[in-house]
């Protein structure tokens, strides 16, 4: 399976009380299409920082991130804000723990938000995606009128609106009940089966057990990498 997202020797540190704290040290990580990759670790281990770096939201202090672009691999080091925004929009989809939907807009408009295709086809695509996540009837509802699980599925539909090859999710089930968690993991599995790369940051054992590949971060370093090969094992 091809590598859609790659961190090579990534390092990151933050200033804290007059000295620098290394959050990530020389991390190499590859996220492949067709797999669910879980990134696990204790709080403060650097997994969210690594997700931000892989999602091109934060620049690493050292190393580089390579994204599989439409015309081949793209080394993102040195790219400007606009180029990074373009890659985020077309090649990556994000799902956040607290959903991060715009509260003043309907589910449909939230899904359409990053849409970069033809205007006339946008609404149809957004409705198709809402139907796929089981929310066809809730398209015109505001986020505040939806449950947590439903909001997270709207967020997943938004992540897919530009048909990106990679989905990055930060604690996507952190605020969900068990039923919603199972539903969402099933959707992630479908996406992986379509050939997309799915990267989940989690400290939830149920989620990590569900992944095909699990990477563990400890004190900013990738200490283990195990392949579980549990494809199709959604609970």
């Amino acid at each position: 399976m091809n590598a859609l997202l790659r961190a090579e020797g990534v390092g990151k540190s933050y200033p804290l009380r007059g000295r620098r704290v290394d959050v990530l040290r020389e991390v190499d990580l590859t996220v492949r299409g067709g797999e669910i990759t879980a990134l696990v670790g204790h709080s403060g281990s650097g997994k969210t920082t690594l997700l931000h770096i892989l999602g091109l939201l934060t620049q690493p202090d050292s190393g580089r991130v390579v994204v599989e672009g439409a015309d081949g691999p793209v080394d993102t080091s040195g790219l400007g804000d606009d180029a990074l925004a373009g890659l985020r929009r077309r090649r990556l989809g994000f799902v956040f723990q607290s959903y991060n939907l715009l509260p003043q807009h309907s589910a449909l408009r939230n899904v359409l938000l990053p849409y970069a295709g033809r205007r006339a086809e946008g609404e149809e695509r957004a409705r198709t995606l809402l139907a796929r996540v089981g929310l066809a009837e809730r398209a015109d509802h505001l986020p505040g009128e939806l449950s947590g699980g439903e909001q997270q599925r709207v967020a997943l539909a938004r992540a897919l609106v530009n048909d990106p090859p990679a989905i990055l999710a930060d604690e996507p089930t952190g605020n969900l009940d068990t039923d919603s968690e199972e539903l969402l993991l099933g959707l992630f599995r479908e996406l992986a089966d379509e050939g997309r790369a799915v990267l989940l940051v989690t400290h939830n054992p149920a989620v990590s057990e569900f992944a095909d590949v699990v990477h563990r971060l400890e004190r900013g370093a990738l200490v283990t990498s195990e392949t579980q090969r549990k494809k199709g094992s959604a609970k």
């Binding site: 804000d81 606009d82 925004a85 985020r88 715009l102 990053p114 970069a116 530009n162």
Partner: peptide, 15 residues
Amino acid sequence: AQEIGILKAVGFRTR
């Protein structure tokens, strides 16, 4: 601010 962050995260350019 959070809304602006979301827009930028999902690919909106600064302009």
